[in-house]
């Protein structure tokens, strides 16, 4: 596997990049902060069994103009990547986003529009050489309109719909699209929030996601229990959803 990871310096992306490098994959990191990228590249290289060099390049989901050069750099370093993983994204609580339209706008743009633009750029590259795997982190928050995550959830619902459509449209042509739906995972992003039941750890999520990539599964919940939790939530009638707090 020759993987490009956007967001591999933090949280679940960091865990994923480490495990991927640790099992011998060639890894290339994309992110917004040069110093942070360097540190994570060293970390991944130290975990690589044959001490592979791990390259990195600047790429900012707020700036779609940065995508092409970043993917060029990754292509060159890896000799043509076959897997693209996107874990980057923005988060805000419902209260924070309602109170701050600047932040809301940035979140909707980054999580939906720009993530899709990035995926399109990655998709065309991989399809030109016969296909590959596109694995993108959406969220359980996109499965159903819910009171505590109306705005964040909407951005992820749109992303999930895109990823599902992409998988239907291009699977036969060789492009596998994987939509990862993490529940609450204890990372820097959720630090300070009260963990609900079934909160997961980034390392466990990462091994599940790598398994899904290997088996080419189109959709995966992590931790696994969230598949059942969301199944129940999706089945709930509207009048019930209106009354409950989640």
């Amino acid at each position: 596997m020759k993987a490009v990871i956007l967001g591999g310096t933090k949280g679940m992306g960091r865990a994923l990049a480490r495990q991927s490098a640790g099992r011998g994959d060639a890894v290339f990191l994309l992110g917004r902060n040069e110093a942070d990228l360097q540190r994570s590249a060293s970390d991944c290289a130290a975990r690589s069994p044959d001490s592979k060099t791990v390259g990195h390049a600047l790429c900012d989901l707020e700036d779609p103009d940065s995508f092409a050069a970043a993917l060029d750099a990754a292509d060159e370093a890896l000799g043509g990547f076959d897997t693209v993983i996107v874990t980057a994204g923005m988060f805000g609580t419902q209260e924070q986003l309602e109170a701050d339209t600047v932040r809301l706008r940035a979140l909707l743009t980054v999580n939906f529009a720009h993530t899709i633009l990035f995926c399109e750029a990655a998709r065309t590259r991989m399809m030109e050489r016969g296909g590959g795997v596109l694995c993108v982190f959406s969220s359980v928050a996109g499965d159903r309109g819910r009171k505590p995550v109306v705005l964040y959830g909407a951005s992820k619902a749109g992303l999930s719909a895109y990823l599902e459509g992409l998988d239907h449209r291009y699977r036969d042509a060789g492009l596998v699209t994987i939509c990862v739906k993490p529940g609450f995972v204890r990372t820097g992003m959720t630090e300070g929030l009260k963990p609900p039941p079934f909160a997961g750890e980034p390392g466990a999520v990462a091994s599940r996601v790598l398994g899904a990539i290997d088996r080419k599964r189109p959709q995966i919940y992590a931790p696994a229990i969230w598949a059942w939790v969301m199944w129940v939530i999706r089945l709930m009638p509207r009048f019930v959803m209106r009354r409950v707090g989640f």
Binding site: R32, D60, L61, E62, F91, Q96, A106, T190, G192
Partner: peptide
């Protein structure tokens, strides 16, 4: 410089428990 980057995207100080 770090502080400036932070303000742009994500990493807000979340409401603490």
């Amino acid at each position: 410089a770090l502080a400036k980057r932070e303000s742009a995207i994500a990493e807000p100080a979340p409401d603490r428990t």
